[in-house]
């Protein structure tokens, strides 16, 4: 439990930043199965007309294209910046923690003259990374997406429903032969629910089940 006691006064002079899953430590299971939060990754949603998206490559994106093929993503050679297709005129730009504000400023400048929208959703969404040979099977417990290798390939990103939570399921590009990693992008307020539901669904693979924070008094 990385979280400080909320009743304590904040340290003077130093703003404290917490992600919605700050209270959850990484979990592991059999055969190298792990689940952890990729905290504070920069996330921007870009809306832009699909007819110009194919031709525009803002410098700020370091050569990464806006994918126009549905459910695809493009990632920089260094792996630090990715652009995910969310809809025909909607992308999510995922970047290293702390880079989103600079990126937003640069993109705003470089897209000037276009009809576009750029919104910072860094704190809106939480990224949960699951790695291990059983990941697809764990996700099958929660989503109706076809998780078979032939249907869900590296680099693909698909919006769907996991349990009761809407989320984007994104298979990260990994080196060939490496263990697959799926990144779930979910609203912050649903993150604890989804984290725990995954841990519950991964019980079969040796992961310890965690239950959502609860115990609030509802009735007088």
């Amino acid at each position: 439990m990385a979280q400080s006691d909320p009743t304590l006064k904040p340290p003077q002079g130093r703003p404290e930043r917490l992600s919605a899953l700050a209270h959850r430590a990484p979990l592991s299971g059999d055969e190298g199965l792990t689940m952890q939060e990729a905290a504070h990754l920069g996330k921007l949603v870009l809306r832009l007309d699909e007819s110009v998206a194919g031709t525009i490559v803002p410098d700020a994106l370091n050569g990464v294209h806006l994918p126009t093929l549905p459910c695809c993503s493009d990632t920089s050679a260094t792996g630090t910046l990715s652009v995910l297709w969310l809809g025909p005129d909607e992308w999510m730009i995922v970047s290293e923690a702390g880079t989103e504000q600079t990126l937003q400023t640069e993109l705003e400048l470089q897209l000037k003259g276009q009809h576009f929208q750029l919104s910072n959703v860094t704190d809106y969404y939480v990224c949960i990374d699951i790695t291990g040979p059983q990941t697809r099977e764990i996700l099958m417990n929660l989503t109706t997406l076809d998780m078979h290798r032939r249907s869900f390939e590296a680099g693909q990103v698909k919006g769907s429903i996991l349990g009761h939570a809407n989320a984007f399921v994104w298979q990260l590009h990994t080196d060939t032969g490496a263990t697959e990693t799926f990144r779930l992008i979910v609203r912050s307020s649903m993150a604890d629910y989804l984290w725990c539901l995954i841990s519950r669904s991964a019980r079969l693979f040796g992961m310890a089940e965690e239950t959502p924070l609860s115990g609030e008094r509802l009735v007088i």
């Binding site: 549905p70 969310l86 809809g87 025909p88 909607e90 698909k158 919006g159």
Partner: peptide, 8 residues
């Protein structure tokens, strides 16, 4: 509307 997907 593909509400959980591309929202189109």
């Amino acid at each position: 509307n593909h509400a959980a997907g591309c929202r189109r």
